[in-house]
Every structure is written in structure tokens, then in C-alpha cells.
Design a protein around this nucleic acid. Structure first.
Lengths: 228, 228
DNA sequence: TGACTTTTATGATCTGCATCATGAAATTAG
DNA sequence: CTAATTTCATGATGCAGATCATAAAAGTCA
């Protein structure tokens, strides 16, 4: 992690946005900006929690592991998103890992100061609670999908979700590059299966792929697919 | 739902425990006690949220549906637990259903009053946030398990979890009765498979079953099983 | 720029678990 | 106290998707 002092603009993340003006200097004081190279690990599942992070640019995947080989991507975080909050709790260790998918700049807030902020700032606490609530809903929905939807439907759903979250570039591609392996880990399947399903979708003219960028050509069809 | 005024003792649930003394009369005023018969629905996925519930006695399953037939049990709630909080959020509708597994008495708090309490009571808000955080961790762990663990391991894990949460009766059985179908829905499998795995476990002398009550005979073996 | 690692690509095979089918037993309702 | 539902029980069959095997292509980096 390379240190860097000139990234955070103090208005991108939840912490800064919901901050009482008087508290901002304190935030400024306690934050540390870092940057990560593509593929670099931010923290690993099981690491002791010493703070939380806010992403200023780039994309991070949040993932859980099973053994050495297998993983499940739980969430993608991007500009403005908080990362590491899953570590807040009794355990005091991250229940997930976080890895940069591309060059990332971020802001670190030590736990103590963050918790002090929560104590002081009711709105922040409330917002964080609501955020957890949303993530919980999301997680449980995905869980049901995992159990009851076939792979193709899950991939359709994932593509729509990603498009929704990251938006499109001018040429219609989802504004995010993720490899097949990551797509597989995100949809709870294997690389090979993900690949085959993607091939099908290309054949059916539902999506177009070039390199790592994916364009949704027929969103309606995808919506249909995610229903079964 | 049968109305009933004599159940809640004002000290079992989170709301009452964390209440400022001065606020308790208000709580007492805004709560409504109900009881449910076994199998009765408390609320259904998609229903508009009009409040939250605290369980005073009995057990409730919280489940998500897929089509008419299939479900996934997301959580079991018992004495003192909050139910319906998943509805707190933008959507204003329950993302899950809740059904009594046995006769249940509970306490209803209308949403408006609950939210007022959150606004007024910082400790309550904090506790609720931590509760969400724990549930999120739990959910994501289960999600990973669902993807990477075979059914037998998931059932082993579920049995240990349930024993942990509900404890044992004098005769060593888990203090909770759930049918095979519910066990299946909880572990993300089908009735038939759950049944077969349970049979195996009985053959292997790891558990003993009589009717709906399940006794763990060999917890170590279960812990081993849940690792693969 | 050539050696190495990682990602993409694709066929062949295997299997865990879902599905289907059918009764018996146990609850629940009338 | 019967009829009607559920829940329990178990075998037979099928398939979606995991695993295995291999190789080309594309990044990465000394």
C-alpha cells in the first residue's frame, strides 16, 4: 500500500457526506490515503480489524474463501463505497477479503475514530444501519437465487445487476471489467460453466463480449432469463 | 392473530431492554400483543411493512420464496428475537415471510413508533446496527457454504448451529422441533436429500431422531463433517 | 524479447443431487 | 371418530453442472 495524501476530497464517502462540519477537520486528521495496484489485497479474511476503508477510485471485490482454491464474491465496491465494515462486530476480524480489481485509491479510517464518529453522529449511525439492512436483504436474495435459480438465470441476473450498478460506457458495455473467473465466483459457479453460459448468451445475441468488457444487447431477454 | 394483553413483560426484547426508563410507558402504550397458532403466517414476502415484532414465546421461521413450491429458510427466531426488521428500508415491504412453527406469542410495535424510538435512543440504534451486521456476516457465510459445501456438510453445520442456538432438552435433543421439509429448506436442499442424509447420520450414530426431535450424539463427528 | 504465469477456450467424463413415482404413517379437520 | 391432508419414507431415473484434461492466447516481468 503506497501512501498518498492527495486523493480524498472529503465529500465522496458516507463518512464525509454525513459529517457535522465541526467534525470534518478531525476526519481529515485521522484519515490515511492509500493506493492499491490491480490484484493487490486490501485485507484478508481472518485478519484483525483495525479500521475501515472508503474507496475514492477504482473497484474492489469483496470475497469469502473456501479452502485455497474456491471463493465466492459477495460484493463489488466502487467510488464512494465503504469497505471493511463487515468487520465491525464482536469478532474483530474481517469475515471477508478485499482485493483491488484495478488500480484503486482509498481512504483508511482507524476503527477507534470511526466508532467515535458513530457515537457522535446519529445520522451516520442511522445511515450505516440502513446500509447494513440493504446489504442483508441483498445477501438473502442472492442466497435464495443461488439455491433455486439455474446458473444461466443467475448469470443473467448478475449481468443486469452489474450494469445497474456500474452503468454503461458510450459504446454500451458495462463500465467494469471482470474476468470470467470473477464472474463465476460472483454467481457461485465454476469458470467453465460461466464460460459456456456466456458463449450461449453471445450466440443468442443477448450480450456481446470483447476482451473483458461485456455489453448487454438485449436486456429484456436477460430479464426473462433471470426468471427461470 | 388473537389479541392478548398479558404477555410481554417489558424486559425480554431488545426494545424494552435498551429502553430509557422514561420511554417505557410509551412502549407499553404502543405495543400490541398477539398470538399465533402453529403454521400461521405472521407476514408474507411482499406485504407492506407496518411494524416490527418481538417474540415473547415460541419459534418463528423467516423464509423467502421462489415460485409457489420452493422456499429457503433464512433464519429461525425465538423468545426475545426481533422479527420484521428486514422490512426497514427503502422498499417498505417485507423481503421475507414469517411463519409460526409452534404456538407463538409476540408483541407488535408499529413502524412509526419504532422509528421514533430509534431516533431517540442511540443505544437501541447502535444495537440494531450491530444486529444487522451480525446477520449480514451470518448470511454471507451461509451463502458461501451453500456454494461450496456438499449437502451433508451443510446439514451437519445446520444441526450444530441449531443446537447452539436452541440448546438441548434434558434428554439431549435439540430444543426445537422442525420437520424434514424445514430442515431441507434451511439447508438449501430438497426434502428427499435431507431425509437421506439424516438417515446416513443416524446409521453412523452421529445423531438420533425420534419423531421431530433430533439429538446430537457425536458433535465432534459433525464438526468434522462440516469441514467437507 | 523470450521465459513464465495467468487467463481464455473447449471437449470428454463423471456424479451429487434433483426429480419422479408411490405408499405408509401421522396430523388435522369436519 | 372417519375423511382428508400433510408429512414421512424409499427406490428408480435423469441431468445440470462440476471435474478433468489440454492447449492457445494474452499478459507480466526480468
Amino acid at each position: 500500500m503506497k501512501k498518498d495524501k492527495h486523493d480524498c476530497d472529503l465529500q465522496t464517502c458516507m463518512l464525509c457526506r454525513l459529517c457535522i462540519k465541526e467534525w470534518l477537520p478531525a476526519v481529515d486528521n485521522h484519515r490515511k490515503n492509500f493506493s492499491l495496484k490491480k490484484g493487490q489485497l486490501l485485507f484478508r479474511e481472518g485478519d484483525p480489524v483495525n479500521g475501515i476503508y472508503f474507496i475514492f477510485s477504482g473497484t474492489v471485490k469483496v470475497h469469502k474463501h473456501w479452502g485455497e482454491e474456491k471463493e465466492l464474491i459477495v460484493r463489488f465496491a466502487r467510488k464512494g463505497d465503504i469497505v471493511g465494515h463487515r468487520g465491525v462486530g464482536a469478532e474483530m476480524m474481517y469475515p471477508v477479503s478485499a482485493t483491488a480489481l484495478e488500480p484503486v485509491t482509498l481512504c483508511f479510517i482507524d476503527l477507534e475514530f470511526f466508532q467515535a464518529s458513530l457515537k457522535v453522529n446519529h445520522a451516520l449511525l442511522h445511515e450505516l444501519m440502513m446500509f447494513y439492512a440493504r446489504e442483508l436483504q441483498e445477501s438473502e436474495k442472492n442466497m435464495r437465487n443461488l439455491v433455486h435459480m439455474p446458473v444461466k438465470a443467475r448469470i443473467a441476473h448478475a449481468l443486469l445487476t452489474l450494469r445497474d450498478k456500474f452503468g454503461n460506457t458510450e459504446d454500451g458495455a458495462i463500465d467494469m471489467t471482470l474476468g470470467r473467473q470473477d464472474l463465476a465466483s460472483f454467481t457461485g459457479t465454476t469458470y467453465e460453466t460461466a464460460f459456456r453460459v456466456m458463449s450461449e448468451l453471445i450466440q443468442e445475441n443477448v450480450i456481446a463480449v470483447s476482451g473483458k468488457s461485456i455489453a448487454v444487447l438485449n436486456a429484456e431477454k436477460l430479464q426473462e432469463l433471470e426468471k427461470l
